[in-house]
Deep mutational scan, measured.
Amino acid sequence: DRYEFNINGVHFTIDDAEEELIKLIEELLKRGARAEEIEEVIRRWER
């Protein structure tokens, strides 16, 4: 599934997002994580 979200006006799209990654990102968003922090999480996840 495609997952899309915005952080401070920056648009992100993840194709074939796994449910666990989506939950992790949503938790980070609730905590007010910065875009750079979430980008790093996504990079690590994709390795």
Rank of each mutant, 00 (worst) to 15 (best):
W45L: 05
V41T: 09
I25N: 00
W45V: 07
F5M: 05
F5T: 03
I42P: 00
K23E: 11
E26F: 08
I14T: 01
E18D: 14
V10A: 05
G32P: 06
A17D: 04
D15C: 06
V10E: 08
K23F: 13
H11G: 06
H11L: 13
A17W: 04
I38K: 00
I25E: 00
I7V: 15
H11I: 15
V10T: 08
I25Q: 00
E19Y: 09
N6F: 13
D16K: 12
K30E: 11
L24R: 12
E26P: 00
E20Y: 06
E39Q: 11
H11V: 13
A35K: 09
E39K: 12
E40D: 12
I7C: 03
I25F: 02
R34S: 14
N8L: 04
V41G: 03
D1C: 15
R47F: 09
N6A: 08
R34V: 14
E36M: 10
K23M: 13
L29N: 03
R44K: 13
E18P: 15
L28A: 14
R44C: 14
Y3S: 00
T13E: 10
D15Q: 06
I42V: 07
A33G: 07
A33H: 05
G32S: 11
G32Y: 05
E26S: 06
Y3R: 01
E46T: 08
D1R: 15
E4I: 03
E26W: 08
E36T: 09
D1P: 14
I22Y: 03
A17R: 04
E18V: 07
D15F: 14
K30L: 12
D1L: 14
L29Q: 04
E39N: 07
H11W: 15
E20R: 05
I7Q: 04
V10I: 13
L29G: 03
N6T: 15
E39W: 14
E20C: 09
E37Y: 07
R43G: 08
E46M: 06
L28K: 08
N6D: 15
F12G: 01
D15L: 09
R31V: 12
E40L: 08
N8T: 03
E20D: 11
G32V: 04
V10K: 07
V41N: 05
L21P: 00
E18L: 04
R34K: 14
L21V: 05
A17E: 04
G9Y: 01
D1Y: 03
D15N: 09
L24P: 00
I38L: 07
I22A: 03
L28W: 05
L29V: 10
A35F: 12
R47C: 08
L21G: 00
R47A: 13
L29W: 04
R31Y: 11
A33C: 06
E27D: 13
D16H: 13
L21W: 03
I38M: 07
I25G: 00
I38H: 00
E37C: 05
G9P: 00
G9M: 02
K23N: 13
E26H: 08
E18M: 03
E4H: 04
L28G: 07
E18I: 03
R2G: 09
I25W: 00
N8V: 02
R31T: 11
R43H: 15
I42R: 02
R47T: 14
E26L: 11
F12P: 00
A17V: 06
A33R: 04
E36Q: 12
E19N: 06
G9R: 00
E19Q: 11
G32M: 05
N8P: 01
R2P: 11
L24Q: 14
V41E: 10
V10W: 04
I7N: 03
T13Y: 15
I42Y: 04
T13R: 06
N6V: 15
K23V: 14
L28I: 08
A17M: 03
I42K: 01
K30S: 11
R2E: 04
E20G: 14
I25R: 00
V10Y: 04
T13W: 14
E26K: 13
E4P: 00
G9Q: 02
E18Y: 04
R44V: 09
N6G: 04
F5A: 03
I22T: 03
D15K: 05
I42M: 07
K30Y: 12
E20S: 09
D16P: 10
E18H: 09
E37R: 04
I14Q: 01
E40I: 07
Y3P: 03
E26T: 06
V41S: 08
I22K: 05
A33N: 04
E27H: 13
W45M: 05
Y3K: 02
G9T: 02
E4F: 01
E40W: 05
E27T: 14
D16V: 13
R34F: 14
I7G: 01
I14A: 01
E37S: 06
A33Q: 04
E37W: 05
E37N: 05
I14H: 01
V41D: 02
R44G: 15
R34L: 11
E18F: 04
L29P: 00
R44H: 15
E37L: 07
L29R: 06
A17T: 06
N6E: 15
R34P: 12
H11P: 05
F12A: 01
E26N: 07
R43C: 09
K30H: 12
A35E: 10
R2I: 12
I14E: 01
V10C: 14
K30V: 12
A35S: 08
E4V: 02
F12V: 07
G32A: 08
E20L: 07
E20H: 06
K30R: 11
G9D: 11
A33V: 11
E40H: 08
E18K: 10
E46H: 11
R43P: 03
A35R: 06
L28R: 07
A17P: 14
L24H: 10
R44I: 10
E4A: 01
E40S: 11
N6I: 15
G9K: 00
E39C: 10
L21A: 01
W45E: 08
F12K: 01
V41W: 05
E40K: 10
V41H: 07
L24G: 04
R2T: 09
Y3E: 01
L21C: 03
A17F: 05
R2Y: 09
V41M: 08
R2S: 09
N8E: 14
I14N: 00
E19F: 11
R2W: 06
E4S: 03
I7W: 04
L28T: 06
L29F: 06
H11S: 11
F5E: 01
E39P: 02
A35T: 10
R2V: 11
F5N: 02
E20A: 10
E36N: 08
E39S: 13
E26I: 13
V10G: 01
L21N: 00
N6H: 13
A35H: 10
I14W: 03
R44E: 13
L21M: 06
G9S: 02
R43A: 14
V41C: 10
E36D: 10
